[in-house]
Design a binder for these strands. Structure first.
Lengths: 227, 227
DNA sequence: GAGTAGTCTTACTCACGAGTAGGTAATGGA
DNA sequence: TCCATTACCTACTCGTGAGTAAGACTACTC
């Protein structure tokens, strides 16, 4: 069973390069993490062999243990790095002085774009991470919580201002909706993988319509549009 | 965990070997599947040891191999059985002659209730199944497709009728929305596990409001309510 | 050039767990 | 009563893959 997207043979087809020697730790750690993300994304945590990661990273296995620790710690390091990248992408796209629907729209679009341009990263965060052995549970719920807080904040602002206390209870009330929205996005990305003819823009628009207008409006032909 | 034996098979009270019960294959298969669902839900596919499943099922390991085949086949059998149960629960709750919003509402509620009353089953379907080794990919996408078709049908009917062709293109257009809705539900159930103070009814209502009314209506105080 | 700190490797060990060999014992029909 | 069948077991094998021992090579400083 040949696999076209085997991470070992995926990107640079370098046959001539005589395996760069003696690079500083910083560089190696990055190489290892890059390789690990790709391999974890491709096989999942348990099927991913440290031997394969070391092969992809072009470094021997003991170096991984020396720099990043056990397989578990390596996986956690991947989660942490990729979660940071994703969350920064989204929160960077949301400008605080825009109207709430516009903010939401930008956030959604940034999310879909990230998922498109960083497939492996997204796969690790979404699919593999949720395999929750009791181990990475902490790391996992941490990143999930950050994502949820980000979205909850977006939604809470949509309902306008008020006293400190009102804002805080509203924030709480928004949590289940935020969970729903996050899940809707995740699930749409999954669907997207099988229907790559759609653009990030189109999908964000659909999701925006769903959560902002709702089916009740949509069946009557009312649509949400940006700007 | 005490072993509650059938009183009829226990006639002489001083039998020294209560374990050898010699039950028919059908019964054992059910016991094995029940145990497997629990263990898979608890540990995930890879961490789940056949030895533990055999222990929980109160039968020896070779019997599992004799009846259900390999670990992979056992897992597939679990997925298949539990997916059927869930899909029947939902489609049983949706009566075709109700108005579309009411149908959607009943479907959502049935889903949340199933997730609440069959935690292990849901966990296997949702969390563990998505670990997509290339193996159960077929089984997985099959059940996911059935769920998606069910929801897509629900949504497509909400937009009323038309010519055969209109219905079919609309059905296609609804797919990404269905994916979003399914994901929203899944994600809300995850959130629910950490916030068990909410009821299935309350959560279905929230999700119904989100997808039917949308935030645009909700921030203006408009709400959806069941008939 | 000697010492030292950091990079990097080959070639192992060893636990774990899927799957099996090879049997015993109960049941039901002839 | 004998035989076939089916239920059921204990006690193994054996591949795989995480993690390591033990040292080699290189590039600094002093």
């Amino acid at each position: 069973m040949q696999d076209a997207r085997d991470p070992r043979t995926e990107s640079p087809p370098n046959r001539s390069k005589p395996r760069s020697r003696r690079l500083p730790r910083e560089v190696r750690e990055r190489q290892i993490l890059d390789a690990a993300v790709r391999v974890f994304a491709h096989h999942g945590y348990h099927e991913a062999a440290m031997d394969e990661i070391s092969e992809v990273a072009e470094i021997s296995k003991p170096m991984i243990y020396a720099y990043l620790g056990s397989k578990e710690e390596l996986f956690v390091a991947c989660i942490r790095r990729e979660a940071n990248r994703l969350i920064e992408s989204i929160s960077g796209a949301v400008e605080a002085d825009l109207p709430p629907d516009e903010q939401l729209w930008r956030g959604l679009r940034a999310f879909f774009e990230y998922a498109q341009q960083n497939r492996a990263s997204w796969t690790v965060l979404h699919r593999q991470a949720s395999t929750q052995g009791p181990h990475f549970a902490a790391e996992l719920s941490a990143w999930r919580r950050r994502a949820l807080d980000l979205v909850t904040g977006l939604l809470a602002r949509a309902e306008g201002s008020g006293t400190e206390e009102e804002r805080s209870t509203r924030h709480e009330r928004m949590r289940p909706f935020a969970a729903a929205l996050v899940g809707a996005g995740e699930s749409m990305v999954d669907w997207w993988i099988d229907h790559p003819e759609h653009t990030a823009d189109a999908l964000s628009m659909r999701l925006m319509n769903l959560v902002w207008m709702g089916f009740g409006d949509m069946v009557q032909g009312r649509r949400w549009k940006p700007d």
